[in-house]
Design a protein around this nucleic acid. Structure first.
Length: 568
RNA sequence: CGGGGCGUAGCGCAGCUUGGUAGCGCACUUGACUGGGGGUCAAGUGGUCGCAGGUUCAAAUCCUGCCGUCCCGACCA
């Protein structure tokens, strides 16, 4: 391709509404343009990248036995009513009516459509398992679209759905998809981690998210410094913490803590580290007006873990000040576990604490030198907190580190959630209907592009992994218009590279070298060959890899094989 | 949904306080010079100043309403 026929749309200035690097670079490099909030046009250069990602995903899915199909973006409300998601999904689901007043939605995902297809098309266990996938536009009416295509409302997704008659069979496909995803992200040249994840609203058994590690990531990932353990912080198991301290034997004492309403207040007022304080939160219970949750002062409550506890009502709700007054008889800042007659669930990390400080259940009063069992005994202990860096890893290997990640893939074992509601069955060996067991597997194709840039860029622009670069090589001639000899050499090289199926761009603009260099670095082409009259005098060309600090002179005769070598 | 910011040429911005001919840089067009890291000179193109209403002799500027867009928040004991 030639720049004269493939116009670049690079911008020198950064559009003011782009907050993160990948969004800025995607606009500046001319990959995308915004149409409206959360809606983006992919320009030719950007589309080339998107198609390369798609191609890798497609190849690997096909290699793993996936069958590609294409479902409509618009879906009838009736299907969503069957699974009750029409009510549950909320305003993220874009709903509308056609001219006949029939109700539809724009699909944010396709479980209903694929299950409907399979229940109609597949009637025997002999046809299973199957794994259908599509690469298709989705729409989710996000509360707050942001960061360009990273969290857009309309986006490109690969979604796959597998059907089975047994959990074992599902687990097999699930493992295969896990391995396939690892292949895909490895081929894409990304630094990623598969992590254990919450199954969330979709439900089901096992679930893994695939995260590209990058500081701009919206999720926090906890992983072991030594073992393979990796989990979303939402899910990472907290453990008991060991301590070398033993109780001093001093007895419980009460101190006045006027106006100290928070752990930072109390710890600075009494000059005690937050980790030696307890914080006590009252939340609505399933059987009680209030349930006390006790955490170490410097720890945060993990909502997802708490909601799973049978005594705690979901969604998690902190009780009102009125309830605190009637149950405890003090203000919110002075609650403690001592003498409470409601269930007290203590986080595991508080187990080994000694001589701690906690609210005295009287406004403006705290206890010091409190100890479990002598002063208070929790109804039970449970894992309630977010893990923090330095915690022991739950697999016993090393400690926890926390990094930011961008979720680019998510796989679930759905089980029979959808098939039961939609009555999707096949005849089993005995001729009786068996409810289908399902898995689903998604990759955010457009988000992968943004994530790759977030992970691979420098001050001059994008550093594409070769597998998704819009072009593999660019030829930059200096003063092309002025030399016939140069034109001939450039055309010869261009033709030769094209003949070798190398994706090559020839910058034949009548632009100054600085402009061409800057543009090519901005759009991130991994390999650059500069040809000039001066170089031809010495039968040499100049090569520079996008991440190389210096250029290398290469004999003209050897440049093709040098590039082939670089491309591996 | 709550709070805040911004809307003036394709992009980045000034002008608004104190009402009076719509401006700058980049980009774009033409020409000349230039030619290895975003050139120089000259001449140009391009605007319903987000929309609607109001105040006024006169509104980008003041007032009211609406719309769009971006950012922050939705864990405090």
């Amino acid at each position: 391709m030639r720049t004269s026929q493939f116009p670049l749309a690079t911008l020198r200035e950064v559009p003011s509404d782009a907050a993160i690097t990948s969004h800025q670079l995607m606009l500046r490099a001319g990959l995308i343009r915004r149409l409206a909030s959360g809606l983006y046009t992919w320009l030719p250069l950007g589309l080339k990248v998107l198609r390369k990602v798609e191609a890798i995903v497609r190849e690997e899915m096909n290699a793993a036995g996936g069958l590609e199909l294409l479902m409509p973006t618009v879906q009838p409300a009736e299907l969503w009513q069957e699974t009750e998601r029409w009510e549950k999904y909320g305003p993220e689901l874009l709903r509308f009516k056609d001219r006949h007043e029939n109700t539809f939605c724009y699909g944010p995902t396709h479980e209903e459509v694929i299950t409907d297809l399979v229940r109609n098309e597949i009637s025997s266990y002999k046809s299973l398992p199957v794994n259908y996938y599509q690469i298709q536009t989705k729409f989710r009416d996000e509360i707050r679209p942001r960061f360009g295509v990273m969290r857009a409302r309309e986006f490109l997704m690969k979604d796959a759905y597998s059907f089975h008659t047994s959990e074992e069979c599902l687990a097999k496909t699930y493992d295969k998809m896990h391995a396939t995803y690892c292949n895909i992200f490895t081929r894409l040249g990304l630094n990623f981690r598969p992590v254990q994840a919450d199954t969330g609203s979709i439900g089901g058994n096992a679930s893994h998210e695939f995260h590209v590690l990058a500081d701009a990531g919206e999720d926090a990932i906890a992983f072991s410094t030594e073992g393979d353990f990796a989990a979303n912080v939402e899910l990472a198991a907290g453990t008991e913490l060991t301590t070398t301290k033993t109780a001093s034997g001093e007895s419980l004492s009460k101190v006045a803590t006027p106006n100290a309403k928070s752990i930072p207040d109390v710890s600075s007022f009494l000059n005690i580290a937050a980790e030696h304080c307890l914080k006590t939160l009252l939340v609505t219970g399933t059987e009680h007006d209030a349930v006390a949750l006790v955490l170490r002062g410097d720890h945060e409550l993990n909502t997802i873990k708490a909601e799973k506890h049978p005594l705690i009502a979901a969604p998690l709700t902190l009780v009102s000040d009125t309830v605190i007054q009637s149950v405890v008889g003090c203000e919110a800042g002075s609650i403690g576990p001592i003498g409470l007659d409601i269930p007290v669930i203590a986080d595991l990390a508080t187990n080994n604490m000694v001589d701690f400080t906690c609210g005295a259940n009287e406004t403006g009063q705290h206890h010091q030198n409190a100890n479990w069992h002598t002063d208070a005994t929790p109804t039970e202990t449970a894992d309630l907190r977010n893990v923090v860096e330095g915690d022991p890893s739950p697999d016993g290997k090393g400690t926890i580190k926390i990094a930011r990640g961008i979720e680019v893939g998510h796989i679930f074992q759905l089980g029979t959630n959808y098939s039961e509601k939609m009555n999707a069955t096949v005849n089993d060996e005995s001729g009786r209907p068996a409810t289908l067991t399902m898995g689903c597997y998604g990759i955010g194709v457009s988000r992968v592009v943004a994530a790759a840039i977030e992970q691979h860029h420098d001050d001059n622009g994008i550093l594409w992994p070769t597998s998704m670069a819009p072009f593999e090589v660019v030829i930059v001639p200096i003063n092309l218009q002025k030399s016939h000899r140069l034109q001939e050499a450039v055309e010869k090289l261009y033709t030769e590279l094209k003949g070798l199926k190398i994706d090559v761009l020839l910058d034949d603009r009548k632009a100054r070298p600085g402009v061409m260099f800057s543009d090519m670095e901005l759009i991130g082409i991994p390999h650059r060959v500069v040809l000039s009259d001066r170089g031809l005098d010495a039968e040499q060309v100049e090569y520079k890899g996008r991440t190389d600090s210096d250029t290398t002179d290469i004999p003209l005769k050897g440049i093709v094989s040098h590039i082939q070598q670089q491309l591996g």
